[in-house]
Design a protein around this nucleic acid. Structure first.
Length: 420
DNA sequence: TCTGGGGTCCTAGGACCC
DNA sequence: TCTGGGGTCCTAGGACCC
């Protein structure tokens, strides 16, 4: 059996762990630059605030409903995620961390242990040690575990956050209840198409012909169909090195000067290179993109991507920066108001499998230099050692007006508990 | 004034090989 | 009249996930 453990309203719950005064009150968490709503407590959902709502359009709603607004605090959420995953690892040797707030576990059926009780124990443990409420869905495939978890979340009172699909009768009932666009693996496009075909729920979809599904939705759709029927097609996956690494940002305002954009691009490239070295890989190519503000139709629009194939694989910040700047030089055109840019590293392979080239190679001194830079930045603080092409006192800053303290990762932010 | 960021997998078609 | 058969690799674009 597969279990899906999913944190309820994760970012909002993280904020609430250290602010118990906010229990029962509406909370939203905003994206970078305080742009959109990306997480909502159940009270905020009930207040009618949709996912992805632009914050500036909902200011009045926030005020009227007394919604507590937070900027996203990834240091906090990332650390809470680590703690939860460490706890989950004690429940099964086969654990897949699927996203920042959910994980799949493979459960071997054990004698004398009922699945409901095991799920209950998982839920209780996470709550006790981290303060985060979770839902648990269990089924004979990952997709069914997802279905079960949705039911658990939808009916918290009746299910107490736990739902187990362990019989055909329960499976059929669950599939009938699950709307087609709520099925894991069926997105907006396919949902529209399927509804046109008369498919309303997961049960209808599971009854479609293999031929139709394969033709219109490829083997991916077919796997989803089998999984809904209770035949596992997707396994627990162990953590793998990333195949692409990106750092992209919407700027806090429009930039038109080359120098300002260049400084940002350098920083994006450095950040990508750090992530690349962390997973002990190097990259063979780099994509850079630059675009104007798609929401401003009173201004001329410009958007371009460029891929640069590196002459040799590298993970040196210095080299990756120089190629990123070269990419910028190719596509930068003066006269536009730029709003977004990004660096994506591609063609990633393990450092250890380096293919030597005859004439060109990375400077061997870079390796030791990068190691030292990474060590210093890790021990004395992020961004303390920079390349000269980065602005030493970075003038730009992400808009984060409602940032909460880093309760679990900064000593000065640790809460004080007074006892009498 | 103001609208996020980071990933994966699959397929068709082109270009190539013998 | 008539023009084979069997492969691989790469890329762009689409669809999906959180």
């Amino acid at each position: 059996m597969f279990a899906l453990v999913d944190c309820n309203n994760f970012y909002a719950s993280c904020e609430r762990v250290f602010r118990p005064d906010l229990n029962g009150k509406p909370i939203v968490v905003l994206s970078n630059n305080d742009g959109c709503v990306i997480a909502r407590s159940s009270e905020a959902k009930a207040a009618g605030i949709p996912m992805g709502a632009p914050a500036f359009k909902y200011k009045q709603v926030f005020r009227e409903q007394q919604v507590h607004v937070f900027s996203s605090n990834y240091a906090l959420y990332g650390d809470m995620n680590k703690r939860i995953m460490a706890l989950l690892a004690t429940f099964s040797p086969e654990l897949e961390v699927y996203s920042i707030d959910e994980a799949f576990l493979r459960l071997k059926l054990m004698k004398d242990v009922r699945l409901e009780e095991y799920a209950e124990k998982i839920k209780r443990t996470i709550k006790k040690h981290t303060g985060i409420p979770v839902s648990v869905g269990i089924g004979s495939s990952k997709t069914l575990a997802k279905v079960a978890s949705n039911i658990a979340k939808k009916f918290p009172e009746r299910t107490r956050g736990i739902y187990v699909i362990d019989s055909d009768i329960k499976r059929e009932k669950a599939l009938r209840w699950t709307k087609i666009n709520d099925v894991w693996g069926i997105g907006r496009r396919h949902a529209v198409r399927l509804e046109y075909e008369g498919v309303k729920n997961a049960e209808d979809f599971a009854a479609m012909s293999d031929k139709w599904v394969k033709k219109h939705m490829s083997v991916v759709g077919l796997r989803t169909k089998y999984e809904l029927q209770g035949r596992p097609m997707i396994n627990i996956e162990e953590a793998k090195a990333k195949q692409s690494i990106a750092t992209t940002r919407t700027f806090e305002h429009h930039y038109s000067s080359y120098d300002e954009i260049k400084e940002r691009v350098v920083t994006f490239a450095v950040s990508c290179a750090e992530k690349l070295r962390q997973q002990k890989s190097h990259c063979g190519s780099l994509l850079f993109f630059l675009r104007t503000d798609r929401f401003r139709n009173d201004q001329p629009q410009y958007q371009r991507d460029i891929v640069i194939n590196l002459p040799f694989p590298t993970n040196s910040s210095i080299e990756i920066v120089s190629f990123a700047v070269r990419a910028l030089n190719y596509i930068f055109t003066p006269g536009y108001q730029y709003r977004r840019a990004g660096v994506v590293l591609l063609n990633i392979s393990p450092e250890a499998e380096r293919q030597m080239t005859l004439f060109e190679n990375t400077n061997p001194k870079h390796k030791a230099l990068m190691k030292t830079m990474d060590r210093l930045n890790q021990s004395i603080g992020y961004d303390k050692v920079k390349l000269a092409s980065q602005d030493p006192d970075r003038t730009w800053k992400m808009r984060q007006e409602k940032l909460s303290p880093c309760y679990t990762t900064k000593l000065k932010d640790v809460i004080t508990v007074k006892s009498e």
